[in-house]
Design a protein around this nucleic acid. Sequence first.
DNA 1: GACATTTATATAAGTAACTGATATAATTTT
DNA 2: AAAATTATATCAGTTACTTATATAAATGTC
Lengths: 147, 147
Amino acid sequence: MEPKTNLTDLNVSDFAMAFEELTRLFIRMPSIEKLSFTTLSVLHTLSLRSPMRLSELIATEQVTQSAITQLVIRLERDGLVERRPDPSDGRAVLVHITPQGVSVIDSRRSERIMRIAKLIEGLSPEERGAIASALPALTRLAELGNE
Amino acid sequence: MEPKTNLTDLNVSDFAMAFEELTRLFIRMPSIEKLSFTTLSVLHTLSLRSPMRLSELIATEQVTQSAITQLVIRLERDGLVERRPDPSDGRAVLVHITPQGVSVIDSRRSERIMRIAKLIEGLSPEERGAIASALPALTRLAELGNE
DNA sequence: GACATTTATATAAGTAACTGATATAATTTT
DNA sequence: AAAATTATATCAGTTACTTATATAAATGTC
């Protein structure tokens, strides 16, 4: 019998190392799309909540207001979002994700899921179980990270 | 007593969703550096193994050979790597990471570790334990992903 | 062992996506 | 109403990419 390690405290450095690798792996995964990282991040944000103002998008991304304005114009040109006026504020622009925009995110997600499934096949049932048990905690960690 | 869920099979879609958020969180984390994603990725690769040929770096990144050549020239200009001839092949260039290059990676890593530590404080001991138990499996998953 | 092919990198020219500075127009504050 | 603030757009300049092509060393051919 192996010792119960469930109460072992979490070594932050080990965690960071593991996630450094996983993050790289994750980012590289869906290699088909030709969209930049920032572009995909904006689309992803909009896939969680749409519409959003340009100013709200600026807060979530790490680029300037000018960059977001131009990026959203390109996204609209490509049919992935629509820009509409905000009835409650004549200055503002509400960015709506289009069905086509949603499908970009969805298809990337399903490609990622397929590839992850292949990797997971290489794990033992115990390893899979350990990850499954940690998922709720990992999800909560991500939530904490979004303030 | 809670049911033993260690043998529960891992739901890939849940896993992908959790990691989608964690990846975004992770990427945004060290916001100080002004280096592009590809640049940091090359530096990180070199922090794991140095020297490497340009051609090897091309294989690990998702940009063209031309882009890598230019990127490494910029990294050398900034003192983060050195380009030296390969004694065993007159065509090749060996890219060595410099101490300054290593320190870029290290300081990003420690900043990330500090921020993660803060987040982890918000988890319960049980949650921390669950993640700790999953770390070996997650590390192996990342290894599987690197072929 | 010259000749053709392949491999490793560099260079050139063009483009896309950013930055910083400034402009415009709507809203809010005084 | 005027002044200050906020939300977005525009402009000019820069950086990091792309594709196509060049160069030079190594390898394979006969």
